[in-house]
């Protein structure tokens, strides 16, 4: 292809048809949500011309539903729109925290958490938060749809589990009960507009002072964000006391396999991920008690 093309289909079937035809003809396509990664990539000197498939005109990708049946966040819903949804603020403060850390006010006006997930950067802030919140990917396929837990979706640095011809429609969650709350914390050298040195998403359920369920996920300290079940096991059955938090932090540290770069050494990242884990649990715990 010599020049870029742009299409903005208005139905799932049309998106699938474009993806299918292009694959058949050996032509490149790229899906476009908020564009905050895509437009930056398009400026790279070696970027190959391709057809940009804008998925923001579909009713399905614009769904933002919070109700007793569950929560659905469509792939075209920006962080700014999520932040303004009161039901979501109450149900998933941790996921909103992660979205609110992605770029500036301007970036959040466009950027989506699904784009962040599909982009599959090791430091993508929404990914540990989505995993902790128990997110399920809703994937459109040629034959219908398939689902996959978020923790299985990112399969490597910049690689996701979508096959040719598929795209992400949105993520869905069970509606958390009032005693279940999430939190996301990351560490960056600058407080705004920086990339995570380490990030931790957690969700805890607390009944009569005892932790009955937990999910812990760490980001930026391995090629992909990881679900740390050892950390969750250390929390479940405890009162979320210091000993349990220490053990959860240690589990995160143990499973992390960070790199050393200008943002921090591997050793430093391991220390930080343990501290963030403990702090994030304390925040989610407090939220669960306040509900």
């Amino acid at each position: 292809m010599e020049s870029y093309g742009y299409v903005a289909p208005s139905s799932i079937a049309e998106v699938l048809a474009v993806l299918n035809e292009s694959t058949g003809a050996g032509q490149m396509t790229q899906l476009l949500a908020g564009g905050s990664d895509v437009l930056v990539q398009m400026r790279m000197p070696n970027h190959q011309p391709r057809t940009i498939v804008d998925i923001k005109k579909l009713a399905e990708t614009n769904r933002l539903e919070v109700g007793a049946e569950g929560i659905y966040i469509g792939a075209a819903v920006s962080s700014a729109v999520m932040n303004e949804h009161q039901g979501l603020q109450k149900a998933m403060p941790g996921l909103l925290e992660a979205g609110d850390l992605i770029g500036s006010t301007q970036v959040q006006g466009r950027a989506t958490i699904c784009g962040n997930l599909c982009n599959a950067s090791p430091a993508g802030d929404s990914i540990p938060a989505l995993i902790a919140a128990g997110g399920i990917c809703d994937i459109a396929t040629a034959t219908g749809s398939r689902e996959m837990p978020v923790e299985d979706f990112v399969i490597g640095v910049g690689k996701n589990a979508l096959m040719d011809g598929e795209f992400l429609l949105g993520v869905k969650f069970a509606m958390p009960n009032a005693n279940t709350k999430d939190a996301y914390l990351r560490f960056t050298p600058r407080t705004e507009m920086d990339i995570a040195v380490a990030g931790v998403g957690v969700r805890v359920s607390v009944e009569n002072g005892v932790c009955t369920d937990a999910r812990v996920s760490i980001g930026a300290v391995a090629p992909t964000a990881l679900l740390v079940s050892e950390a969750a096991n250390a929390l479940i059955g405890s009162t979320l006391d210091d000993v349990a938090l220490e053990a959860a932090g240690q589990a995160c540290k143990n499973i992390a396999s960070p790199i050393s770069d200008k943002r921090g050494t591997a050793e430093y990242r391991q220390k930080v991920v343990a501290v963030l884990c403990k702090r994030a649990i304390a925040i989610a715990h407090k939220r669960a008690l306040e509900n």
């Binding site: 564009g35 905050s36 930056v40 500036s104 301007q106 006006g109 466009r110």
Partner: peptide, 29 residues
């Protein structure tokens, strides 16, 4: 910058603050 970092290109699109360098012209349709 052209890459979303500086905000010099800020505009409002349907009332929403965005970087015009991070949007395609055709998306303003």
């Amino acid at each position: 910058c052209g890459t979303g970092d500086c905000g010099a290109c800020s505009v409002l699109v349907d009332g929403r603050l965005v970087c015009s360098c991070l949007m395609l012209g055709v998306e303003a349709s």
